[in-house]
Structures are given as C-alpha cells and as structure tokens.
Amino acid sequence: MSRVSVDFGGLQLKNPVLTASGTFGFGVEFMDYGDLRELGGLVAKGLSLRPREGNPSPRICETACGMLNAIGIQNPGVEVFLRDYLPRLPWRETAVVANLYACTVEEFGELAALLGAEEGVAALEVNVSCPNVSEGGAAFGQDPTMIRKVSESVKSRAGDKPVWVKLSPNVSDIAACAGAAAEGGADAVSLINTITGMAVDVRTRRPRLANVVGGLSGPAIKPVALRMVHQVRQALPDLPVVGIGGIATCEDVLEFILAGASAVQVGTVNFMRPDASFLLARGLEEEMDRLGVSNLEELRGSLRLPAPKISRR
C-alpha cells in the first residue's frame, strides 16, 4: 500500500483518480496524452447490449464553468468494446471499469453477465439514468425500488466483480437512493451523474441542444456533488462512495476524499485539456505534501463538522 493507494468494495487501486464514463472514450483516445497506467482506473464509455446511435445534434453546449450534454449513450455495443477496445487497454496495470446502460432490469443482467466474465474488467458501474422502458419511461434512477432491483440484477450476474451504482442527482433524497443500491448488493455508489439542465439561444429562440434538455457537468456542479457525497457518507458510513462532479485540481480530489469518498472520477475536465487526469494522478502526492496530508486513509471522512447544537430552554 502506498500513501495514495485505495482499497474499497473489493477493489484495490494504485491511486484514487479514475476517469468518468463518457468523458474518456474507451481510453485509447487519450493514449497520446499520457500513460493510462498512471491512472487509478478508467471508467469506459457507457455500453449497451446493442449499438446506439445517440441523439441528434447539437448535442453539447458550453455554459458558465461547465457544459451541457445530451449525447444519448452513442456506443458501438458491448461486443465491439470487448473485441476491439478492451484488448488494447493496459488492464493488468490499471483498473478498467465497464459502465452499463440498459432500459430494462433483464438487459442490465445480460450486460452484467457478459462483462462480469471478462478478466480485463475490474468492476461494473451501473448507469441508472436511462428511462425505464418496461415501466413506462420514468427514469430508473429516481425510484429507489428500481435502483434496488437493477442493483440486484447486476450483482447476481456479475460473478466476483465489484458493482458500483452511479446515482442521479436529480432526486430529493440521495441517501435513500444510495441505501437502495446497497440493499440490492452494490459494493459502492458513484455520485453524481449530471444535473438536468437547459440552455436557450435568445437570438434564434431555440434550445441550444437538439434534445432540449441535457446534463450539466463541470466545475459548476462540484458543490452539489460534494454535498451529496457528504450526505451519503453521513447516512451510510459503511458504503464506499466514488465522488464525481467538477473535479479539476488535486485540491478538488482531496476535498471529495475529506467528505468521505473512497475514490474520485474526473470528467468534463478531460475535455478542457486531454492530459488533465494524468496531471491530477501525478500531482496528488505533491498536493498532499503541501497540505500536510500523510495518507488518504487518514484524510477520508475526517471533515470537521460543527458540533451539533444542543437546544436549551
């Protein structure tokens, strides 16, 4: 164990810096910009059973301190990933996490069986942001009962692989969603996914995304993400959390760990400069030295909260 290695939910990572799904392609796109083996892990672009063409354009829009996207999980399907991309990744030396996207509980299970059987896949991350087709189109991720069912389905078919459930922040009680994932057998929760948002062009009087609404990401959402990591940690101290949301600096990484995250994922900042994740993985120890942090275990969850107020008459 080095001072930056982390161990949670049945998985050991050389450092806590992973790349977030949808922001790092299948990893091969970034091989020119750094050595993938420097990362704690990479979470691949969301995979569905069959290829998906995604949404119409425009799909992205720049916003203050962030961006909106409505890509629509364009991907070539799980089989192409396993055949053409996974073999090119240094999965023996850095954790490759597969991200699963499906619209029924059964499809999630099928995906889990395919990916869980792969030696090169270190863990499965479940994207519950999709519309639940069999239940009339309401999002899985906003219904704790569905989160539990999807978690059970994936965990039961994933073999010995750790299962992370990536939660939507577009809910009123994030701890209830995390609890449902844990009940369903999740080894960790990843939070947060993007926050639903919208941008309009006053000149054309049109929405800036063809899909009208999209997911907000980037440094703009970091405070929301930190708040949710904190809330889940408070409610469920034994459930490991992978923190995601606007991480752009090494200090941001340490903030999430302080709030209770076991590891983090770097997302939108990969677009802002393609070596960003490598810089964060590489710079973490120096930042710890600067802030007097001896190791991450000591830092994790050590947030100094104000003493609870005792009401007096």
Binding site: F24, E29, D32, S57, R59, I60, Q74, N270, F271, P274
Partner: peptide, 23 residues
C-alpha cells in the same frame, strides 16, 4: 466546423450524420 468540446474523439459532441452507419 462543428461545435467541439475535446477535439480528441471522446465527447461525441461534434458528430456528423453519415450517409450510412452511425454518426
């Protein structure tokens, strides 16, 4: 000259429809 975020093929924001095949 499509709108782009990353320039390196990761964001899938700049896609164009092809006559055949996926964007």
């Amino acid at each position: 000259e499509n709108r782009m975020a990353c320039g390196v093929g990761a964001c899938l924001g700049c896609v164009v429809r092809k006559v055949s095949g996926p964007p």
